Simulated scan of single mutants.
Amino acid sequence: MIVPVRGDDTGLLERLRVLRTAEQVPLVGDDRWPQAQWDAVRAVAATTATPPGAAWATLTSGSSGAPRIVLRTAESWAASFAAVARLLDAGPDDAVLLPAPPSASLTLFSLAHALDGGPRPLLDPADRADATCLHGTPQALRSVLDAGPLPRLRAALVGGSHLDDALRTRAEEAGIRVAAYYGAAELSFVAVDEGDGLRAFPGAELTVRDGELWVRSPFVALGYAGSDGPLRRDGEWATVGDRAELVDGRLRLLGRADDAILSASATIVPEEVEAVIRSVPGVRDVVVFGLPQPRVGALVAAFVELDGPPPVGLRTAVAAQLAPAHRPRQWFAGELPRTAGGKPARAEAVRRAVAGEVDRLVL
């Protein structure tokens, strides 16, 4: 039985322990949800017959649209606890700072790890000084660094979105060893980058078929509650539709196939353009998308979040690294909307730009 739980419940960890001991399936919600969303989640929980072995219900981030409820076994997370403990160099005597709310799958993973002997979770920002490690998004790591030094913090496990090299360097200069990973709510951990590129996460096997990434691992979820989603299976292998390349054992992500921008005769991968724009000093983060345009299909557009005024020569710096069809033709600036876990909310970012709710940059 799926049991919705409020993320602000007093004694959340103990509440989760009680539910799991009773073999119920916790689903931690976001305290900021409107009542209608809580009602919808409770309705799904009440009408979904949980499959055998289901132990946890998590939410996809909703970065590209409405979130889904993902069901998984206890073993699908427990199988990665040892590898995560090594990456964080952390055990039960350590404390892991969890900036994202418990409704985020990466935070709920760490709560499940704590119930199985992992580091003590710190959900209250007031307890940050006790943290010896961190599990969160790049935005969370940046916020921690911006807030000032944490003398005990020595390691960070960072996922959810792209970690740029400048942020990794900044953390390492502060004495924090960083492991960045790629994963998905449906697949859990897929690949990890300890400083020399993304490689298969311990216990996972990767292959690319017709440009699409497939994973074989014990971490894959059971499926969805009350809806369908991008998770597909072929025997022991699974995919959520991410496009990728494998070169010398290193994984290069190219985004979802349905995110590609078709402009005239060119196919543009937003993640490739975003990587170039993020490399320009002064750019904090970016979402690249296509604006519909008659005859050519779409024009490339970029919604940038800046550290200050627009960097001088931004357009020139980008043009020097991108083919003409891949260069953004329209630029928008503002604070990127984010999911509860801190990932850029792509669908909402595009909506705001198209609706004229953010400033247009003239470069």
Rank of each mutant, 00 (worst) to 15 (best):
L59A: 00
P309I: 14
A340I: 10
G356S: 06
G341N: 00
A347W: 11
V318I: 10
G136R: 01
P324Q: 10
L206A: 07
Y224V: 00
G229P: 12
A79F: 08
S217N: 06
R352V: 03
L98Q: 05
D130N: 11
V350G: 06
A114R: 12
V70L: 00
G7F: 05
A340V: 07
A185S: 14
V354S: 13
D124L: 08
A317E: 14
L361K: 04
L13R: 03
G11K: 09
D146L: 04
L59I: 02
R243D: 04
V70T: 01
L363K: 11
V144N: 10
F109L: 15
L108Y: 09
E212R: 12
R232T: 06
V318L: 11
D259V: 05
L213F: 03
W237Q: 04
W214M: 05
W214P: 00
A85F: 12
V300G: 04
G195D: 00
A238I: 01
A319G: 12
A45F: 03
S103N: 13
V41I: 13
A112Q: 13
L322S: 13
R278W: 10
S61F: 06
A155Q: 07
L59W: 00
E245Q: 14
Q139K: 15
G203H: 06
A155F: 10
V286Q: 01
A185K: 02
R250Y: 05
A79G: 02
A260Y: 04
P230T: 07
P292A: 03
L253E: 06
G308V: 08
A126K: 14
R250A: 02
R209I: 10
D127S: 12
R42C: 15
E272D: 08
P309N: 13
F289H: 02
Q330M: 14
V280P: 08
V362A: 15
L13S: 05
P311K: 07
V354A: 12
H326G: 05
F289N: 02
R168M: 04
L87Q: 14
A45D: 03
L291R: 15
V286S: 03
R250K: 08
T21S: 12
A355F: 15
R168T: 03
T48D: 12
V18S: 10
S76M: 01
A104W: 01
E173F: 10
P138C: 10
A174K: 03
A22I: 11
L106R: 12
F219G: 03
A166V: 09
V96K: 01
V220N: 00
L134Q: 01
D228G: 12
Y181A: 09
A46R: 05
R72E: 12
R199S: 07
V318K: 01
A131I: 02
